[in-house]
C-alpha cells in the first residue's frame, strides 16, 4: 500500500512538472506575433502620407530658391536636414505656380516670383521625403534596410497616387498648389536642375 501511494505521488508530481514545462499555442498566433515584430515600412509610409503631410511644415518655394541662390552653404546648413556625414541637404517646400511645360520626366512650373522649378513625374527615387520631413531617425533601426525601405515605400505612394492624377490633369497654363521634397548637394550644385518630388498637388478651379 505504501509503495502504491509513493508511486502515485511520483506520477502526479511528474505529470504536473511535464504539464507546466510544455506550453501549447496555436501556430497562427505565433506567426502573427512574429510578424508584429517585423517593421512594416509600407504601413508606416502610408500613415505618414495619409495623415501627416497636410500639416507638415514647408518653406515657401520662392523664398527657398532666393535663399539658396544668395547664400547656398549657410542657408542649407541652417534650414536643411542631412543624414550622417554628407553634402546633401533635404527640404520640404510649397508654393503656388503656373505650368509652363510638360515633358516626359518633369512638369515645369513658374512661381509667383518668376522662378522656374521642375516637378518630377518619372524619376521618383531617393530619400528627399524621408530626410526632408525628418519623419524617421536612422538610430531607431537595427537594420539600415528597414530605414531605407521607408523611402522606397514613400516613393511608391507618390508614384502610384500623386503622379498619375497630376499627369492626367496637368495642362500648360494651369495654376496649382504644390508641396514636395527636394535634395541639394552643395558640392555639386545645379540650382536650375532642382527636382521636386511631389507630395501634394492641388489645381486651382
Amino acid at each position: 500500500m505504501n509503495k502504491v501511494l509513493k508511486y502515485s505521488i511520483l506520477v502526479v508530481v511528474l505529470g504536473l512538472a511535464l504539464y507546466n514545462s510544455v506550453n501549447i499555442e496555436p501556430l497562427d498566433q505565433i506567426k502573427k506575433s512574429k510578424s508584429d515584430l517585423v517593421f512594416n515600412a509600407a504601413s508606416y509610409a502610408t500613415d505618414f502620407m495619409s495623415n501627416k503631410i497636410e500639416t507638415l511644415p514647408a518653406i515657401n518655394a520662392s523664398n527657398f530658391l532666393g535663399n539658396i541662390s544668395d547664400d547656398l552653404e549657410n542657408y542649407t546648413k541652417q534650414k536643411g536636414k542631412k543624414l550622417g556625414i554628407s553634402d546633401e541637404y533635404s527640404f520640404i517646400i510649397e508654393g503656388e505656380a503656373r505650368i509652363t511645360e510638360i515633358e516626359e520626366e518633369y512638369v515645369t512650373v513658374l512661381l509667383e516670383e518668376n522662378q522656374e522649378l521642375r516637378i518630377s513625374t518619372e524619376f521618383i527615387f531617393g530619400n528627399a521625403i524621408r530626410d526632408g520631413s525628418g519623419m524617421a531617425n536612422i538610430d531607431d533601426y537595427q537594420n539600415t534596410m528597414d530605414f531605407n525601405s521607408i523611402s522606397v515605400e514613400l516613393n511608391n505612394i507618390v508614384r502610384e497616387t500623386v503622379v498619375p492624377s497630376f499627369k492626367k490633369k496637368a495642362k500648360i497654363g494651369d495654376i496649382l498648389y504644390f508641396k514636395g521634397a527636394v535634395t541639394i548637394d552643395i558640392a555639386d550644385t545645379q540650382i536650375n536642375g532642382i527636382k521636386v518630388i511631389p507630395m501634394i498637388i492641388k489645381f486651382s478651379d
Binding site: L83, G84, I85, S86, I138, D139, T144
Partner: peptide, 10 residues
Amino acid sequence: FSKKTPLQVK
C-alpha cells in the same frame, strides 16, 4: 554618440 553615422556615397 549617434548609433549610426552614414557617409554619403557619390
